[in-house]
Amino acid sequence: MIYVKKPGLLSTLQDQGRIGYQKHGVIMSGVMDPVSPRIANLLVGNDENEVVLEITMLGPTLVFEQNTIIALCGGDLSPRIDGSPIKQWSPIFVKKGSTLTLGQAQQGCRVYLAVAGGFQVPKVMGSKSTYLRAGIGGYKGRAIQAQDNLSIGTPSPTIETKIKELEEQTTNNERFLEMKWYVASEFAAPFQSKSSHPIRVIKGREYDLFTQESQQSLFSESFTISSQSDRMGYRLEGSTLPLNNEISLKSEAVAFGTIQVPSNGQPILLMADRQTTGGYPKIAQVATVDLPVLAQLKPGTTITFEEISLEKAQKLYLEREANLQQLAQGIHLKSIQEGFR
């Protein structure tokens, strides 16, 4: 069990989303950054798609009422256990009674907390993700609040044995144990460097309906993520992107990373809680490999876009998945070979 002392700004349980229900108008929900939580899960011995706690901008204070192994991946919210700073991108043994505090986002915008065994909440329509607007899924269909008790699921027998061993290895004064190693791959890199790369996009289905100036502005101007941005979408401030002619489109499916432009010309970038369908023209679509970067940008950040071909975007996606698979094998080996000291 994990006791919520302070909930943070917006902390919700999310997995990789509700799949197969969009035809019924049920949004996908799920994690904003699709990669960091997969790594966090691998580090604690879970299935990579297991439910995690998505922590936004300002973190919670959580008290562990049992021994467990946790991992924090994604943005840096200065995690501490009983006052001592702890590593991210690495498994951590946490002892019963320890308190994990997370502060303000120093780098990135969201961090993902995985616990060995996952969080024990019922699946709704095949997923444990919180669907905030409909009040379903996750923990009671809402963000966590002070005094909530989050149940932890049963970890694999191997991990369970490891937790027992680690408990015996620690002295009474030790509140947690860290491993010497951590994931220092390209996956962690976007949140460790301050340099900003352009977000890569593929031309959208209605790209040709926009004026030439709009098309040029998209790739030459910069846009600022407005403060009116949330899990549903990012509103972008900057040049307006008008169409050649006002037209009325028939509503159709949209996707994670679709950039749609309402009649006011201000683009909206659709994120995890987007509606299933939309009727605004779509000028571009963010490449899947750049979604994690996007998810870690705070409101107020300025971004630029760069065009890539569909072929290139898919090639990068296949490469990323191959690298993640390799990383998964690496983590598995490390966990077997190396202890926590």
Partner: peptide, 18 residues
């Protein structure tokens, strides 16, 4: 195929490139 969404004039298929 991961899932599909029918609309007024379209059917959109979501797929797993892998």
């Amino acid at each position: 195929i991961t899932e599909y969404i029918p609309a007024f004039t379209t059917v959109t298929i979501f797929y797993n490139p892998l």
